[in-house]
Design a protein around this nucleic acid. Structure first.
Lengths: 226, 226
DNA sequence: TAGATTGTTAATCGATTAACAATC
DNA sequence: TAGATTGTTAATCGATTAACAATC
């Protein structure tokens, strides 16, 4: 499909979603072309960087004109894997789980949460929208049967690893972990440990710096584990 | 207080919260000393990197022994500005706002949300725990009077910039933005744009890569704007 | 054509890691 | 002392930016 196996720089990948969001906005405003300089303004990334990043994926523009908005959008969707619907299960239907369940930003990304799980007997069977909450004992079974590839963990820290283990043994490929612990997984499983508190800490650090020095943090939200 | 104005590498700062979490865990387990190698295991960061990062802040260990858990914890708290209580206001008391309001990870970080704001008449006056929801028209007034330094934006994308503008004009110093837009602020204000969907996108990308190549993403959640 | 903006190479910059003497 | 683990320098690696010819 692609040439000689592109090696994507770690940080390029974290910038792509921002380009994507900006290009979607352009698209919705009806723009046909956009220059790297304009994207640069919108996402706070150097224009050369952007051209270079896009080049890596053969998302090419036209000299003197810029990038076709429609084409670029399509290309980014392809790179980011947004064309296929990504089915997921979510474990832990507390407040955080519920917030994620209707976080507006996911629509664009083709994320579809197809089943919910929790341990608390009093909410099992409850429906949120069209989705029923199942007991965690059903997790392995359902994930395996529906061939779900993504698991979202929103349980407490103490329960996270065991949930992860169940997910892995039922054939999950990627885990998005919001619990306050690092979970350990085999090499072939993709994990993203989302630690909101860590973001907060860096914010506080900047805040505690005195006057002039304060450089502001933005956020290609960064990085990736091996 | 400090010597010749330490210049902290951008990424060092994003790793610190992870060290902190690990060291807290050690502390709670009653450990007195921990080596850079042990921390390395726990947070998935090279041990040399850790020693170097800590060195920058004069968080020194003892050769042959390791780091004093208590001392290191204290030092990290100081660096991350966790000793002073950080008062914040939260604007937008929807599901996301409520989730953040009781996200367990914040306790450690001295974040205290002291007032809530929303526009929806039907929830104004409602109390969440001990905190009342005020109308957004009161925002400027209250922030200024209480000298609040941190604002958390959990409104929809369309409302975010105007909320930010109000916060800024009432003297806020830092903004933690969960809305799906980049907000623009003056240079001296610290912003962290938290885009959960972007995290999702990188997860999907890894997922769509074929077989052997799949290196997993972890996440010193990254980065900082200028 | 002249002006704009691209793709790409080369130069710079910063972050990571390897190596090791110093220290408990 | 011997063993462990540090602090720190030097070497490597990768990411960013400046410069510019090629192209529309």
């Amino acid at each position: 499909m692609n040439g000689p196996a592109i090696r994507v720089p770690k940080f390029t990948l974290t910038r792509l979603p921002y380009y994507y969001r900006f290009v979607c906005d352009c698209d919705e405003r009806g723009l046909k072309f956009v220059s790297s300089e304009e994207i640069s303004q919108g996402v706070q990334v150097n224009a050369v960087q952007i051209r270079r990043d896009l080049m890596l994926f053969d998302a090419l523009g036209t000299p003197g004109v810029g990038y076709s908005v429609g084409e670029l959008r399509g290309k980014l969707e392809e790179i980011l894997g947004l064309n296929n619907v990504n089915e997921a299960v979510l474990i832990g239907v507390g407040r955080l789980g519920r917030a994620i369940l209707d976080y507006p930003g996911f629509k664009r990304y083709g994320l579809s949460i197809v089943a919910l799980f929790d341990n608390a007997p009093e909410i099992i069977g409850e429906k949120i929208g069209t989705k029923e909450i199942f007991p965690v004992t059903e997790l392995e079974h359902i994930v395996a049967r529906l061939h779900i590839k993504v698991g979202i963990i929103t349980v407490s820290a103490s329960g996270a690893q065991s949930v992860a283990d169940i997910l892995i043994s039922s054939g999950i490929k990627a885990i998005w972990n919001f619990a306050q612990v690092y979970i350990r997984v085999p090499r072939e499983i993709v994990v993203r440990n989302e630690d909101l508190a860590a973001g907060l800490a860096t914010l506080f650090h900047h805040l505690s710096e005195t006057g002039t020095e304060t450089k502001v943090a933005s956020d290609p939200p960064l990085s990736t584990q091996l």
